[in-house]
Amino acid sequence: MPISEEQAMYEPEQRIKLGFVRCWIEMITGIVQSRELIIQLFHRDMLAASKQSLLGIAWTWVSPLIGIASWLFLKHVGVLIPGKSDVPYPLFVLLGTTIWGVFMTVFASAASSLTANGNLIMHAKFSHQVLVAQQVSQASLSVAANILLLAAAFAFFGVSPQWTALFFPLTLVPLLLLGAGIGMIVSVLSVLVRDMTKVMTTLLGVLMFFTPVIYAPDAGNDVLHQLIRWKPLTYLIGGARDLLISGTIRDPQTYAGAVSFAMTVFLLSWRIFFISEQKVAEKA
């Protein structure tokens, strides 16, 4: 039997020694070569989620609906004064939380990619980027489900979005990249320090209240305005929402800056993940 073409070499710190260009080539080819495994793992989790479950993927809709109900209640009793908006408040909240949800869902999935698969990592050799890719695709599916819910809500409130709404999914991509980027770094660190994921999830949860998710950017006083002004997330979320409601992005230059920031974070984190995960994966 002739020996197969596959070859492998293992050395200490081999990925960091690869050099800039070769490292990127390996990262990308690693993902391309493992596409079938990503599909299989995706398929596994889809099947597993639908078995022995009444609602299956519909669970994605439960949390935003409960969220809206609470915000509505707070607004109704006069505790929450969300500021002006062009659409009914429930729709505004749903839109805000859906967009925020893209960031958080992808972050949480990416952050748990190594620790949730410790058993697999210890028993089989494969590119661990696969786990992040699979988790992100899984999260994207729930994002898609939430977009459907959003479309239904628009129809329910009789609001017709602008034609530019077709580009709405594209505006979610920078949020997805930012979430995945931060998540990848957290996944490496949380293998070493287990409470890292909890710390970051809590911090990001608090961050939501300092970001115009459930209120308009002009709500609140100057302190809040200063706080939200410096966060790229404000512009990424605002941009996506503007595109759907008013058809334009209010401050395109700042938005472009925020998008570049998200992409830089993603690319940097991906590289850091690729270089360092080998060292920590054995502790997962």
């Binding site: 197969s4 492998a8 050395e11 200490p12």
Partner: peptide, 8 residues
């Protein structure tokens, strides 16, 4: 050290 593997 170093490990080199040829084949699957």
């Amino acid at each position: 050290g170093r490990i080199q593997v040829r084949g699957r």
